[in-house]
Computed example of a mutant assay.
Amino acid sequence: MTYDRLVCANCAAPVSEGRCPVCRASRERLQQQGVFAGLSPVALVALLVVLLGALALLAHQTV
């Protein structure tokens, strides 16, 4: 999940604005999660399908 859609339970503002210490801490934590943290589940499934297709093509050509 991307942090731009989250709403802080402490101050009821978007987390991306970082209005309170809780927002700022959550924003920092979400930014440090890595490369695939911002991708939607649909994008991750599509990436997995592409990688499996490439692997199948490679396996077929080595036979």
Score class of each variant (00 low, 15 high):
Met1Asp: 03
Thr2Cys: 06
Asp4His: 13
Arg5Ile: 05
Cys11Phe: 03
Cys11Trp: 04
Ala12Ile: 10
Ala13Met: 04
Val15Leu: 02
Ser16Gly: 12
Glu17Trp: 07
Gly18Trp: 04
Pro21Val: 05
Pro21Thr: 07
Val22Gly: 01
Cys23Ile: 07
Cys23Arg: 02
Ala25Cys: 08
Arg27Glu: 01
Arg27Cys: 04
Glu28Tyr: 04
Glu28Phe: 07
Arg29Ala: 14
Leu30Ile: 03
Leu30Asp: 05
Leu30Asn: 02
Gln32Asn: 15
Gln33Ala: 11
Gly34Phe: 06
Gly34Gln: 06
Gly34Ala: 07
Gly34Ile: 05
Gly34Trp: 04
Phe36Ser: 15
Phe36Cys: 01
Phe36Leu: 12
Ala37Ile: 07
Gly38Pro: 00
Gly38His: 00
Gly38Phe: 02
Leu39Thr: 01
Leu39Met: 15
Ser40Pro: 05
Ser40Glu: 13
Pro41Gly: 06
Val42Gln: 09
Ala43Pro: 09
Leu44Glu: 11
Val45Trp: 12
Val45Ser: 15
Val45Ile: 14
Ala46Pro: 08
Leu47Pro: 03
Leu48Thr: 15
Leu48Gly: 14
Val49Arg: 14
Val49Thr: 11
Val50Asp: 06
Val50Trp: 03
Leu51Met: 14
Leu51Ala: 15
Leu52Glu: 05
Ala54Ile: 11
Leu55Asp: 04
Leu55Glu: 08
Ala56Glu: 05
Leu57Met: 08
Leu57Asn: 01
Leu57Pro: 00
Ala59Val: 15
Ala59Leu: 10
His60Asp: 09
His60Asn: 11
Gln61Thr: 07
Val63Leu: 09
